[in-house]
Amino acid sequence: MKDLLRLRTSLSEEIELLLNEQIKAEAYSSAVYLAMSSYCNRNGFDHSAGYLEKQSNEERGHMLKIFKYVNDLGGRAISPEVTNIPQEFESFKTVFELSLQQEIKVTGQLNRIADQCIRLKDYTTFEFIQWFLKEQIEEEYVARRILELFDLIGEEGTGRWQIDKQIPKVSYGESTDEE
């Protein structure tokens, strides 16, 4: 008897499910960053608003990358339903605390996918997911650095105004030393 399941796709059902969950997680991140951008915008933190909008686009890019991978391998990528997006935030600082938490959560999920890939001997997806794991180093680094600005500069007086100005400049790698 032919193996029709394998003819259809090289993705196992478990991995396909996990990747679809990740598609949803990236879409959720994208939507949350957009909500954060809006919050910053209406509270006068223009630089942060721009930075968060860019982040939102990046997360959508991540989503599409996985989406395409699933379809390319014969799987069924599912356009995710994204709900429960917070629209209000306690403070300027909370926005960035939440964004770090969100990134940490995503790193955890990606690690779990890598783990399952090894368990199921899916080295193709394991290789694919490496890019995302590397990306998370950067994402967590930047999120942490941004939070540190709140302590370094302090929120008193023109502090928040200055923090806002510095946020888009935080980056990982060579360019970090420039400022």
Partner: peptide, 10 residues
Amino acid sequence: NLHLNSIICE
């Protein structure tokens, strides 16, 4: 049975 078949084919 389909998954069993996949494993056997593999």
